Simulated scan of single mutants.
Amino acid sequence: MMSIRTRDASHDDLPHIAKLFDLYRQFYEQAPDAELARSFVEQRFLNRESRQLVAENAAGEIVGFSQLYPSFCSVEAAPIYVLYDLFVAPDARQGGVGRALLLAAEALARMEGKARMDLTTAKTNLVAQSLYEALGWTRDEVFHTYSRRLAP
């Protein structure tokens, strides 16, 4: 296990987050696009549309990030976070970075009074699923998730 420190992202962190975000998108079979990645994470940060957390190794290098979007659960009539993005640099995997980011996100959500956190991951991402389940996340067996692409 490597020494990991998590914290809220600052504006200075955005270039590092953008690099990881571009790799994250490639993991989900999107074409590399450094400018799109930079613009997207910067806009979410500047517009305060998400909370971004970073994980640093002992040398102070950013080796992972997570991005949380505020939302609401109508059934519970309460605010929640959607943990949409979580990515660890390939050379930092298996070192506790993902675990540290998840625990930091949970602590933030509790501190801000969120009722729960939701996330989705690819059915093939078994490594991530095992981490989520080890930390007490439960797979939804009640609801189906649907999406519909909207033409511009």
Rank of each mutant, 00 (worst) to 15 (best):
S3N: 14
R5K: 14
R7I: 11
A9R: 08
H11R: 15
D13T: 07
D13W: 01
H16L: 12
I17E: 02
L20C: 03
F21R: 00
F21H: 11
D22K: 05
Q26V: 14
F27M: 07
F27Y: 15
D33W: 02
E35C: 01
R38V: 00
F40L: 11
Q43M: 05
R44C: 07
R44H: 12
N47C: 06
E49F: 02
E49G: 15
R51G: 00
A55V: 03
A55W: 05
N57W: 03
V63S: 06
G64P: 08
F65Y: 14
L68C: 09
L68G: 05
F72P: 11
F72H: 13
V75M: 14
E76V: 09
A77R: 07
I80C: 10
I80V: 14
Y81V: 06
L83P: 08
L86T: 06
A89K: 10
R93S: 07
Q94R: 15
Q94T: 07
G95A: 13
G96K: 03
V97H: 02
R99Q: 14
A100N: 05
A100W: 02
L102T: 00
A107W: 01
A109N: 07
R110K: 15
M111E: 15
M111R: 15
M111Y: 08
E112C: 04
G113E: 01
A115L: 05
M117A: 08
T121N: 09
T121A: 09
A122R: 08
T124E: 13
V127L: 08
Q129T: 06
Q129W: 11
S130N: 13
W137Y: 13
T138E: 14
F143R: 15
T145M: 06
Y146E: 04
Y146V: 10
S147R: 11
L150N: 01
A151V: 11
P152W: 04
